[in-house]
Design a protein around this nucleic acid. Structure first.
Lengths: 129, 129
DNA sequence: CTCGTTCTTCTACAGAGCGTAGAACAAACC
DNA sequence: GGTTTGTTCTACGCTCTGTAGAAGAACGAG
């Protein structure tokens, strides 16, 4: 699967969280008023982003298959192709698939999840047939 | 966590599979006689790699914390810091951690593993307390 | 101790990916 | 039709990675 850059990921997060079709400018607006994942001391809000930058990023995301675009209306509208949960699950499979010792990796993985999540996993597996 | 390039990953795979300390040249030798993950039609074996290339890659892997190096003997010897299983499990956590909807992602994940692996997971979770 | 060999470090470059955005072009609105 | 709004084309700089030569350091032979 194609990987995502920082801005690309931020854009996808906005699309994933507001499960809707959005224009480039709407996306930009929601993006700038976001924590921006900086966590550094001092200002942490994202710099203003040019409209063309948004459009470039969205075009690339379209090429990569992460978004679809409605071209029939004038501000083109963008929508995430998959849910973030699906995307995450796919990534987990990808990471795991690269490893010949899948079992051992799975063992380490379940050995290091929180008890709460272990319980969640048990339930999920129980209801699976 | 730092990411790995193709060659870096190939080197790590050799180190992981032969759980031992190896010199740059020994690594190179094992590398060239490997399938090289190409799967394309025609020749798929890896091109010869210069010794200095190996050393550069290994230095970078050391900086990234993936290998340690014994500097006391003359051909320096390199060893993987973590097992591949640990590395894979860490990556899975990283992928998952990026997602606020962890539960949903886990659900998709366990929903798409093979029945055999589902069984494996059940056992692992059962023996976990 | 000196010389050649072996090994390592330093430096460098090219290609790809990504953030960035201006310039130019197209559409829509008044 | 001209202004405003939106899109595409083109492009540049930065970082990462694969690549490796040139230069320096250590080591064994004699």
């Amino acid at each position: 699967m194609a990987t995502l850059g920082d801005l690309e990921r931020a854009v996808m997060n906005v699309l994933w969280e507001s499960d809707a079709e959005l224009s480039a400018n709407a996306l930009r607006d929601r993006l700038v008023e976001l924590p921006a994942d900086d966590s550094g001391p001092g200002g942490s809000d994202r710099r203003e982003i040019a409209t063309t930058t948004m459009l470039t990023v969205l075009s690339r995301l379209e090429s990569k298959g992460f978004v679809t675009r409605s071209r029939d209306r004038r501000p083109h509208l963008y929508r995430a192709v998959t849910s973030r949960a699906d995307h995450t699950a796919e990534l987990m499979h990808e990471v795991l698939g690269a490893s010949p010792d899948r079992e051992a990796a799975l063992a380490r993985f379940v050995g290091s999840v929180s008890p709460t999540e272990a319980e969640t996993l048990r339930k999920l597996l129980a209801s699976r047939g």
